[in-house]
């Protein structure tokens, strides 16, 4: 009960931010009636999805301060569980999605245990390495379609399998996940684990002196992040109806996830959402514009890279970090 009250309690935010977020939520709810074309709809869905990913990453990467660059493997686990179970045994989404999350949780504990013996760059590289290992396995694993990927059977409009012919349904579907994610994160940042993680980030030795098992806390946060991301992955499976290791497990996806949160402002509730709101449309519109200009191939990624370098060099706390500096409070 207390947790639910905490999740809905935004009272420590300045009034203007609460109003702003309220208006933004209304906009999100009304969006399908604003007469956007299907491209705009797709961008919006992508934005909500990446916000969800970013919020998940934020637990371990932002609040916990661990440079985690292997989230794509959990997108893959979530997506593949849904896809494989639907293709092989015709299992509905609402059974396979929770299973995928459970597998992601189990796997995250399994590799989180050795992973969090590491710190700093050792850790960052190791997260990349584990993600690449899993991608390699999926590329060579015929049961899951290997490098060719896997195509989901078309089921028409069905809530059981979460397949729709109209994007509006998908939109509200991911919006529900997004809002649940925001509420969860609003609880998380004020939870015992949330505070403990920030203490670990500031000074791990001091955190331990306060009775905090730093490694265990990080493993828990990592598992939460993985579950978040796996949920997003399960959405990709039913939304795209086709997945392959290249699209759901690639290193670039891991980078994008971390980047969105960093750009917007890690360790803040709004940060990942702001990051996704900037990067996803940029990515989409730039991508579609560049699609017509073959000679400019690669420019989109050069722009992201320039943004990353700029943020890292001059404002490591991201866009929201600038706002927080002015308002003098972190939330």
């Amino acid at each position: 009960m207390g947790a639910i009250r905490e999740a809905f309690d935004f009272s420590d935010f300045p009034l203007v931010e609460r109003i702003g977020f309220g208006i933004f939520c209304l906009f999100l709810l009304a969006f399908p009636w604003l007469g956007m074309d299907s491209f705009g709809m797709a961008v919006m869905i992508q934005f909500l999805l990446f916000s969800l990913f970013g919020m998940g990453w934020n637990t371990i990467g932002g609040y916990g301060g661990q440079v985690e660059l292997g989230k794509a493997q959990y997108v893959g686990i979530g997506a593949y569980t849904v896809a494989v179970l639907m293709v092989r045994w015709d299992i509905p989404y609402w059974f396979s999605m929770p299973l995928g999350v459970l597998i992601a949780l189990g796997y995250s504990f399994l590799i989180g245990y050795p992973l969090f013996r590491l710190k700093g760059h050792y850790f960052a590289i190791a997260t990349i390495a584990t993600s690449l290992v899993l991608q390699d396995i999926f590329i060579n694993w015929n049961f899951v379609g290997a490098a060719k990927g896997i195509e989901l059977p078309i089921k028409g409009n069905t809530f059981l399998y979460m397949q729709f012919t109209n994007d509006t349904y998908y939109y509200y579907f991911i919006l529900a996940y997004f809002l649940a994610g925001v509420l969860y994160m609003n609880w998380f940042r004020k939870s015992k684990l949330g505070y403990q993680l920030r203490m670990i980030k500031i000074d791990e030795e001091a955190a331990e002196s306060l009775g905090i098992d730093a490694r265990w806390c990080k493993i828990k946060a990592y598992a939460i992040a993985s579950a978040f991301v796996a949920v997003g992955g399960s959405f990709i499976a039913v939304y795209n109806l086709y997945i392959d290791p290249e699209s759901v497990m690639h290193l670039e996806l891991s980078i994008m996830i971390a980047l969105m949160a960093m750009l917007g402002g890690a360790a803040s509730l709004w940060g990942p959402i702001i990051g996704a709101a900037i990067l996803v449309p940029l990515d989409r519109y730039l991508g579609s514009w560049l699609g017509g200009h073959k000679e400019l191939m690669g420019v989109d990624f050069m722009i992201y890279a320039a943004i990353i370098m700029f943020i890292a060099a001059f404002e490591p706390r991201g866009i929201w970090g600038i706002v927080e500096r002015y308002r003098g409070r972190r939330t």
Binding site: I255, A266, M297, G298, F301, M302, A306, P316
Partner: peptide, 24 residues
């Protein structure tokens, strides 16, 4: 001057930049 997170991401950005410069 920044935290380690920034150092990691910074050279990561450089990696992406050079890679896609080559693509370009």
């Amino acid at each position: 001057r920044g935290p380690m997170v920034a150092q990691l991401l910074g050279t990561f950005g450089l990696m992406l930049f050079l890679r896609y410069l080559a693509v370009f």
